[in-house]
């Protein structure tokens, strides 16, 4: 189980998650959601670049990549909903562990967007 124990590990996991969702939604024919995922990926890349504050880099505990598996085979509406819920859960767990407010805010927003998508 890969530990998401650094700022970069959390952000990189989020970036890869959005990239995988982008490809997943492309395969599912959901262009709108693919675009949303891509927009989030770009935003998260910016956050990883701009919000890394050398003097407050601290270890992160209690977050593991394995707890947030996506099922990319199941492109049914129910499968999409489940993946959105997983993504939302990841962001909800990750945001409070990041000690840079700007980054935290973006993670919270990503979480909200996935939560809304899960409800749609």
């Amino acid at each position: 189980m890969t530990a998401l124990n650094t700022f970069g590990a959390v952000l990189t996991f989020a970036i890869e998650l959005e990239a995988r969702l982008h490809d997943y939604y492309c395969a599912a024919g959901r262009v709108d959601r693919a675009q949303e995922a891509d927009k989030r990926r770009v935003k998260l890349e910016r956050v990883r670049r701009e919000s890394v504050l050398e003097i407050t880099l601290e270890a992160i505990e209690g977050l593991n990549a394995g707890d947030y598996p996506l099922n990319l085979e199941d492109t049914t509406p129910a499968g999409q909903q489940a993946n959105e819920r997983t993504a939302a859960q990841f962001y909800a767990a990750a945001a409070p562990k990041i000690n840079v407010r700007e980054a935290q805010r973006v993670l919270e927003r990503c979480g909200r967007e996935h939560e809304e998508a899960a409800g749609r």
Partner: peptide, 12 residues
């Protein structure tokens, strides 16, 4: 150094 430290360095 670590990736985050390197990123922090480039940021500064």
């Amino acid at each position: 150094k670590t990736r985050d430290e390197a990123r922090g360095e480039i940021r500064r």
